[in-house]
């Protein structure tokens, strides 16, 4: 029964990793940009949630309603003011600029909040759990986060494949010049994509803030988890990303059970194994 609990915990945190990954994959799909500052933006969202709950005294989970629009606005401005200027055929500018951004965000947060570990309290829900079956307990908060993660990914799928909005994203991702002939302003489309990505990041950031201790330096690890989930799942499929996140989460949980120091290593090794054996990922998009 112990192992069943471990696997379940791994699955549940996998939802969170899938959210990290979804924002990353979205951006890469639409504008071929990998945002190295992705993880640090998640941490930024956590700190914005911290400021929101401190000043307004609300439950952090409700704070999502405030943090998400703020992050979306930040994403829109960031893309239009800075990142749109890096896009093009050359690989270096977007990579180096987002790397610089990562360093800036980390150190700005360090200056503003110090390196102290923080955590947000969501109240009694944090310790609540219920039995799924004899001997198998599920934490309410992790389950809630998993359900929300699945809902977010489902909403993204719906958005991309059933709405005019999503159609515009996909068309721009297919062909940036011809999409302009449809009346789409690339600068605006990219900025909207980044805003969407950051809104997803906001949810992930709040969840992290409630679930674990956070400090300005934990960003890069989140970027790596998101990236690993994308690669394991396979580029081009949101549900594949969810599967990738779950596999990563379960690997980490199993590793931690064998030896607490092996948690992260187990996840990395799972990623490297997939990269070695099936580099296109487990559920890659099949091109017609």
């Amino acid at each position: 029964m112990e192992w069943a609990n471990i696997v379940i915990q791994g699955v549940l945190i996998g939802g969170l990793y899938a959210m990290f990954a979804a924002g990353l994959a979205l951006i890469f799909g639409v504008m071929r940009l990998v945002n190295i500052a992705h993880g640090d933006l998640i941490v930024l969202a956590a700190y914005i949630a911290l400021m929101t709950t401190d000043t307004l005294g609300m439950n952090p989970l409700l704070a999502i309603l405030i943090v998400a629009p703020i992050m979306a606005a930040i994403g829109y401005c960031l893309q239009r003011a800075l990142l749109n200027r890096t896009l093009g055929n050359d690989l270096l500018p977007p990579l180096l600029v987002t790397f610089g951004l990562s360093v800036i965000i980390q150190n700005a947060l360090l200056e503003l909040f110090t390196a102290d570990s923080r955590r947000l309290s969501a109240g009694a829900i944090e310790v609540a759990s219920f039995p799924l079956a004899p001997g198998i307990w599920i934490g309410v908060l992790p389950l809630l986060q998993f359900v929300v993660a699945v809902a977010v990914i489902g909403a993204l799928q719906l958005l991309f494949y059933r709405t005019a909005f999503g159609r515009a994203f996909r068309a721009t991702a297919d062909d940036q010049s011809v999409s302009q002939l449809m009346g789409l302003d690339n600068r605006h489309v990219f900025a909207l994509a980044m805003a969407l990505s950051l809104a997803v990041i906001a949810v992930a950031g709040v969840f992290i803030a409630v679930r674990t201790n956070f400090d300005p330096a934990i960003g890069p690890a989140r970027l790596i988890f998101g990236f690993e989930a994308v690669i394991i799942g396979g580029l081009g499929s949101m549900w594949g990303t969810l599967a990738g996140g779950i596999i990563l989460g379960v690997s980490q949980a199993i590793g931690a059970q064998i030896n607490p120091g092996w948690q992260l290593l187990a996840g990395h090794l799972a990623f490297l194994l997939i990269l070695a054996l099936r580099p296109e990922g487990l559920f890659p998009k099949v091109k017609g």
């Binding site: 005019a164 159609r167 996909r170 062909d175 999409s179 449809m182 009346g183």
Partner: peptide, 15 residues
């Protein structure tokens, strides 16, 4: 647009 269907290609023209 290669990842769009025929109808989606037409629809995006009417964006």
């Amino acid at each position: 647009f290669s990842s769009l269907s025929v109808e989606e290609n037409l629809l995006i023209g009417g964006q």
